[in-house]
Design a binder for these strands. Structure first.
Lengths: 343, 343
DNA sequence: CTGTTAGCGCCTTCAT
DNA sequence: ATGAAGGCGCTAACAG
């Protein structure tokens, strides 16, 4: 592959002049020399080696993204928004899938070794260990960030999970539901805990049951949602024996799980919404095409993604900027998965 | 950040010895020196700078992936499989989303500039221009590859789109359908054309209509599928005026489009499968949770992804290996979107 | 067994 | 307006 020296030789100038032309500085170049250089660049189809440039200049124009999965439509839509914003600013996205925590740590290391300019962490389980590290590039987390000592060291973008979850539960209560189960998320990250907290808070607010027998943790997948449903609504569910009645509604922490919840309800012979009402969280496109369409709390996914990217790029430019926390809120999208409980 | 020189200084050895220890060669190192080096590495939390290593060694251990979208579940599942395989082999994935062809070209350039070890192209629209380039890293395409002169220069992985599409159409015919519409894909890539060809071939095989009035091209999105449905089944559809009857079934080129097809049918007051039967292509998880569940040709997405990654890694290791074309076939997954036409 | 050294390709200061 | 040269951090060939 042609190098800068080749171009310089053909143009009859020194390598420095080639850089001057291509980078628009820092020194002026005569029109003649410029023309010869550009011709040589054309002839060789020359492009600067980004590796060498990065080694020299200290910037890779690459951003790392650590994401739990791309199969979950919420994460997929988020990744799409982030990539779009980065593309616009001339940055490349390096992606690691962080199914499990060990993998997340390995990927984090790898990204730092590769000197990415910044990192976006989605639902990170190893943020604590990150913050302990000496030297990391700027980081933005898509999820709430809570530091032990209250001081924030990274920026974050997220919805108000507690309030938005409470709102979803309130919607169910408004239709007359009291015994409402909660399909919780799998990971020890704030977003998962907060959605349970929002459910519990809202149940407590009207004196409705909020015990652990009504909570089932599950993976953020359809299968996870199905399992949780069997645990909560199946014949020998603890929720049923404790309350001597089957929950009439479920608050589900993600659309991905809700797909499996619908499936499991069908298997159990329960009709949605006649026998069981469902409200889920995320508001992805996929929620519109289920049977029945899901009533779901729609997160502003595009905004979350573009904001995360923009915050990060700002931090890359000005490393000693104050970390920010940007909070959005969700909107209830009415599907057809909620009805009044059978009386 | 600590450099190799720092570690060497602390360990009281030369920088080369640090490399010998960390890289396991190429020269032996005494146990004592090794211990001191490792202690120093530990103390500094030192890791080699991957940028410098790449500049020197010629390998970035990074693979580029160009993908049309992550929101389409077929592409998302494919990306997931590819990332998994690359992670296993210690490679990082750099992703570019190639919504439009211009973007694809920019990304391709960028990946080459960054000296990725190889590139995976999904449904590429600019392969022709790639093949014209002088120096590219190894490339694997997920789609069929057709060179003008018949000689293949890159490897490919794909299903037999013509045969698998024909099979899907045959399934509809088996239920008694004759007037079958085709929702085609949007891009000038082999996979899109071949699915239409499979539909047409199978229609011709039984002397059923296969004219262009029965084909509607559309984006690989739900909205695309909906628009195509209006064009084919709406009140003033050309298909209807030509045949003086409404198509009783649709062959849909992707699950993503099929979601929108279902939606549009509901809007048009057409029941699925009573009024319109549907078979789609891809067989993603998402097809199981629609209303009704989709009957769809399931591509072996995991295998496609891991095979693409493995072929590429082979080519990276042995650049003058013969390009291969690996062909898989799809399986019909029975949902509930097909029934006999109303007589 | 260990140390020295020459680049990899680029950017940029300094000298001309 | 241009050229020469140092150095980013690393690997590996070469010399002790």
């Amino acid at each position: 592959m042609a190098t800068r020296a080749d171009v310089a030789a053909m143009a009859g100038v020194s390598p420095a002049v080639v850089s001057y032309v291509l980078n628009g500085g820092p020194r002026p170049v005569s029109a003649e020399a410029r023309a010869r250089v550009l011709a040589a660049v054309e002839a060789f189809d020359y492009r600067p080696n980004a590796i060498a440039s990065a080694l020299r200049g200290g910037s890779t124009r690459a951003i790392g993204l650590l994401i739990p999965s791309t199969v979950n439509p919420y994460f997929a839509e988020l990744a799409d928004a982030i990539e779009g914003e980065l593309y616009t600013s001339g940055n490349l996205l390096s992606v690691g899938i962080t199914d499990d925590a060990a993998r997340e740590r390995v990927h984090l290391r790898s990204l730092i070794d590769r000197r990415v300019d910044g990192i976006i962490l989605i639902s990170s389980r190893s943020l604590a260990s990150v913050e302990r590290r000496r030297e990391t590039p700027p980081i933005v987390v898509v999820d709430r960030v809570e530091s032990a000592d209250g001081s924030r060291t990274v920026s974050s973008v997220h919805v108000d999970n507690v309030a938005d979850s409470a709102y979803a539960v309130e919607h169910l209560q408004g239709w007359g539901h009291r015994l409402i189960g909660c399909v919780a998320g799998p990971w020890p990250v704030p977003a998962c805990g907060e959605r349970v907290r929002g459910w519990r808070q809202q149940q407590d607010a009207i004196g409705a049951p909020s015990g652990d027998e009504l909570v089932a943790h599950a993976e953020f997948t359809a299968d996870g949602g199905a399992e949780a449903t069997y645990a909560l609504l199946g014949a020998d569910a603890r929720a049923i024996s404790v309350h001597d009645a089957r929950p009439t509604a479920l608050f589900v922490s993600s659309d991905a799980q809700a797909h499996g919840v619908l499936h499991a309800c069908a298997v159990l012979g329960l009709r949605v919404p006649e026998d069981v009402s469902i409200v889920s969280f995320d508001g992805t496109q996929s929620a519109r095409f289920t049977n029945p369409p899901l009533t779901t709390m729609r997160q502003p996914i595009q905004s979350l993604g573009t904001t995360a990217a923009r915050l990060l790029l700002e931090a890359v430019q000005q490393p000693d900027l104050e970390p920010k926390a940007v909070v959005f809120h969700s909107n209830l999208v009415l599907g057809a998965s909620v009805a009044a409980p059978a009386s």
